[in-house]
Design a protein around this nucleic acid. Structure first.
Length: 490
RNA sequence: CGGGGUGUAGGUCAGUUGGUAGACUGCGUGGUUUGGGACCACGAUAUCGGGGGUUCAAGUCCCUCCACCCCGACCA
């Protein structure tokens, strides 16, 4: 009956995702985030609430990176949230880059402050103020500090959970060296750490390369970035590393006496990975059934669902409990709620991205087996209970690899190499990232942006480049100086 | 910040020429169920985004502010 059909539709709308990833990415993404209980909106526009699931994933990422930073000799510190306006103003480029999106504290209680205080959009200015006091001699170097904190950038575009929020969490590494070479060498180490975490934990490939002049961090000499490709055809920047040369050192007076007793400005780097990468990861891996979390990052890797019938309930529950104890290392969830059907639970946990489901029912008891379902392929497999741990470990490995492979395929299939403007335009219209020769002049980047909305140079790979000799810039047709990736940016 | 759209129960939405608040879902309790979104009964839940105005009467008309969504300039 029509009435029933209508009810059925509403029911579906309620519980699961109502749109497909390929049909309406933006709506799909929002539903993934809200319905899987990763995050929720807050009363402050652009500031989201990290619910336990999202925060646990972030904690794990943070833990792995932090471990590697510490091993590399980087120490954690904490600097204040508020930065006096006078300090923020010291480096002109840096200020120009951030001032449009700085939030200010102007009052305390009923009294106006003498000087406005910026809520940090990033901490160079306040940290370097101290650095200039702390660094006196070559013996004080290198100084390698990092902080895990929140920053605020008052974006005017619509906020999107994780991908573009006004407050976000990140690490900001701020290091100081006596020589340019030492500073630049650190770049390889840091990008190596970020890349490892992206690949091994988040199952995300990226395009690593040097940013163009126009896209370089405000106040840096150059920027190395990891660029990702989102399923909606947009490119988005992940972790980055900036070599500041002596620019900040000169603005903030960070000098030291070298071994010859001569005064020198220090060389600096800054680097960061933010909670934006959570959004990138959720967007790339998840599907029409809901969230998919790479198993290495999933706080609960397994959900055990006992199939309960009146006559066998206690036996099945008992076995499920045994398995629950046996699988503790995977921090399992046991869903023994009696007021929901098994099918309902399957949908719920798929939506929430639990990597592996263990089904156990009366038919399985006799054979000492269970059914395993993996979230990425939705494949089911019968497994003997004695082989459970072994099989789960295999599936976790395979799933982690498979997610990476699928993400890599998405990235590779969406890169096209072009050498003239017309095919460039066509590729961009087809939502590709384009690899093309460029004269590297900023006026060409500007012209490009005017000709094709939202397109910008992403970066230029550090190695394995194509031969640039003899190639022409796809915009001005003059001699090209480098190959760059271009794309519509998120 | 510019252009467009939307705000009614926790969620999705209905609400006719203005006449005083509805559905489904979810939530609570009890019972029957449970191998891919089961069912029955009862129950709680709305300052109709906020403020102001027109009117005998406003969810409905007008003004204003706010929030959210889409598209742009900016950005991790």
């Amino acid at each position: 009956m029509a009435h029933n059909k209508k009810n059925k539709n509403i029911e579906k709308e309620e519980l699961g995702l109502t749109v497909k990833k390929n049909d309406d990415f933006s709506e799909w993404y929002q539903q993934i985030i809200i319905k899987s209980e990763l995050a929720d909106y807050s009363p402050v526009s652009g500031c989201i609430i990290f619910r336990p699931l999202a925060y646990a994933i972030w904690e794990k990422i943070k833990e792995e990176i932090d471990k590697r930073f510490k091993k590399a000799g980087i120490k954690n510190v904490y600097f204040p949230l508020l930065i006096p306006e006078s300090l923020l103003k010291k480096e002109a480029n840096h200020l120009a880059g951030f001032s449009p999106e700085v939030a200010w504290v102007t009052e305390a209680g009923n009294s106006k402050l003498n000087e406005r205080l910026a809520i940090r959009p990033t901490s160079e200015t306040i940290m370097y103020h101290s650095y200039s006091k702390w660094i006196r001699s070559w013996k004080d170097l290198p100084l390698r500090y990092n902080q895990w904190n929140n920053v605020m950038r008052w974006e005017f575009k619509n906020p999107v959970p994780f991908l573009r929020s006004r407050e976000f969490l990140w690490n900001e590494g701020h290091t100081v060296f006596a020589t340019k070479k030492e500073a630049e060498d650190e770049g390889k180490e840091i990008i190596g750490i970020y890349d490892e975490i992206l690949r091994e934990y988040m199952a995300l490939p990226s395009l690593i390369g040097k940013k163009s002049k126009g896209e370089t961090f405000a106040g840096a000499e150059y920027t190395i970035s990891c660029e990702h490709y989102l399923p909606n055809g947009k490119a988005i920047q992940g972790p980055d590393f900036h070599h500041d040369g002596q620019i900040f050192a000169k603005a903030y007076d960070i000098k030291f006496l070298n071994k010859d007793g001569k005064e020198e400005y220090a060389y600096q780097n800054t680097f960061a990975i933010s909670t934006r990468n959570l959004g990138i990861m959720f967007a790339i891996h998840s599907d029409d059934n809901g969230l998919i979390i790479p198993p290495k990052l999933a706080p609960n890797k397994i959900v055990i669902i006992p199939i309960l019938f009146e006559d066998s309930k206690s036996k099945v529950l008992k076995k499920a409990q045994e398995i629950f104890i046996k699988l503790q290392e995977f921090s399992p969830i046991i869903d023994d709620r009696e007021d929901y059907s098994a099918g309902w639970k399957y949908h719920e946990w798929e939506l929430k991205g639990i990597p592996i489901r263990v089904e156990i029912g009366p038919k399985d008891l006799a054979n000492e087996q269970i059914i395993l379902m993996r979230r990425d392929t939705l494949e089911k497999k019968k497994v003997k209970i004695k082989d459970l741990e072994k099989e789960i470990k295999i599936i976790i490995e395979e799933m982690q690899k498979n997610l990476y492979k699928t993400a890599e395929k998405l990235l590779k299939e969406n890169i096209e190499i072009v050498e003239n403007f017309n095919s460039f335009k066509k590729s961009i219209e087809n939502k590709k990232i384009v690899y093309a020769p460029w004269c590297t002049e900023e006026k060409c980047a500007k012209e490009l942006k005017e000709k094709i909305e939202g397109v910008k140079p992403l970066n230029s790979p550090l190695d394995k480049k194509r031969e640039i000799k003899g190639k022409k810039c796809i915009i001005c047709n003059k001699e090209a100086r480098d190959y760059f990736y271009f794309g519509k940016s998120y």
